[in-house]
Structure formats: structure tokens, C-alpha cells
């Protein structure tokens, strides 16, 4: 394993704390929004149902809603912002906003880090967060009820565990992907 110049491990945890707040907000908005709404719920007309649709009572409103209404759902918009932040963290980790906030405002007020950490695992975990939130966005846009809050809840659990306990679930997934033959390198001769 090659040694790469380490990063302060508190930086990714700080970012995870902010992301977990955003994701908790996403879950609330997703649960209260179009994703779980039924056609008989009050105010469903706001979701611009397709003219050709029929609505049995209790049926999910999302599949009947226009794509524009699905995308305008507040939960979708916040999760889109979260996904873009994850993408930023994967593609350009040095300029990712929460990392900058941490290095400019938080780190100078703390004691120096006792241990520096390899930057690759948190970056990989950001990629897992990006994949999960993208899946939620795509399924929601395709009209699958409950997909958005469930995806946001899964990402929330990972981010919150990282922020509070320092557990990197995304990093653990790496070994599982590897065992399944989906990640990593083949055996060296």
C-alpha cells in the first residue's frame, strides 16, 4: 500500500455531519411530499395528474404525476443538491465546500490532528453516497413511490454513523464489492 499524504480525519466527519443534516431534511421532505402521497390525500391536484390517469382511492400519486411535478417536489430538489455535493466530493475533493469550510474555519481552532488519514476511503464513501442518492433521484423521476425517502434514509444512516461514531460504511462496502468481484484489482500473479 502506498503512503499518500494524509488528511485530517476530522474533516470528512465534519462534512458527514452537515450532509446528515441535509439528508435528514431530505427524508422529511420526501416523506411529506409527492413520493408517499396518495391520490385521495388533500391537495393532490397540485401534482398535475395526467389527464388520462384514473385514480382508485389510496393509489400512489407519484406515478400519475407529470415528470415536471416529480422534479419540482422539494424532496427531489434537496436530494439533487445533496447528490451534486457528493459528486463534488468525488470529482474534486480538494475544493469540496465542506472541506474548505473545515480547513478555513474549523481546523485552525482545533488542536493539530493526532493521526493523518488516507484520503481515498472517504472519497470512495462519497461515491457510494452519490450512487445511493442518484438511484433515489432516478427512481423518483421514473415514478417509483417511496424511493426518494428510502434512498435518502440509507445515505443518512451512513453519513450520521460517520459523523457521530467515525464508522465509514461506504468503506466497508468496498470489501463487499471486492468479494463480489465488482471492485478492486484482480489477483496479482
Amino acid at each position: 500500500m502506498s503512503e499518500i499524504r494524509g488528511i485530517d480525519p476530522r474533516g470528512p466527519r465534519f462534512a458527514a455531519a452537515i450532509m446528515s443534516v441535509l439528508l435528514a431534511v431530505t427524508v422529511v421532505l420526501g416523506l411529506a411530499g409527492l413520493s408517499t402521497a396518495t391520490v385521495d390525500a388533500i391537495g393532490w391536484r397540485a401534482y398535475q395528474p395526467l389527464a388520462s390517469s384514473t385514480f382508485p382511492p389510496g393509489a400512489a400519486a407519484l406515478p400519475a404525476a407529470h415528470l415536471a411535478a416529480r422534479i419540482a417536489d422539494p424532496g427531489f430538489l434537496v436530494l439533487l443538491a445533496v447528490a451534486l455535493l457528493f459528486l463534488w466530493g468525488v470529482a474534486w475533493p480538494m475544493s469540496a465546500p465542506w472541506g474548505l469550510v473545515y480547513r478555513r474555519l474549523v481546523q485552525p481552532r482545533l488542536r493539530p490532528a493526532a493521526d493523518l488519514e488516507d484520503p481515498r476511503p472517504p472519497r470512495f464513501a462519497q461515491g457510494v453516497g452519490l450512487a445511493v442518492s442518484t438511484l433515489g433521484l432516478v427512481l423518483h423521476a421514473a415514478g417509483v413511490p417511496w424511493a426518494l425517502p428510502i434512498a435518502a434514509a440509507a445515505a443518512f444512516v451512513a453519513a450520521f454513523l460517520n459523523a457521530v461514531f467515525g464508522f465509514c460504511l461506504g468503506c466497508r462496502i468496498y470489501l463487499l464489492l471486492q468479494r463480489a468481484g465488482l471492485a478492486g484489482r484482480a489477483r496479482r500473479a
Binding site: 435528514a24 422529511v28 421532505l29 416523506l31 411529506a32 408517499t36 444512516v157 450520521f160 457521530v164 461514531f165
Partner: peptide, 25 residues
């Protein structure tokens, strides 16, 4: 789902995640 019920669900999610983290640790 009503907004207040959604908030309750998220509070339960936070609690369940804290319990999971404690068990993992």
C-alpha cells in the same frame, strides 16, 4: 404523509441509527 408524522419518522430513524452505531462500536 403529514409533515409532523414525517418528522417523527426521522426522529425514530436518528434513534435507530444511534442505537446501531452504539452496537457497532
Amino acid at each position: 404523509m403529514s409533515a409532523s408524522l414525517a418528522v417523527l419518522v426521522v426522529i425514530a430513524l436518528v434513534g435507530a441509527t444511534l442505537l446501531t452505531g452504539w452496537l457497532l462500536r
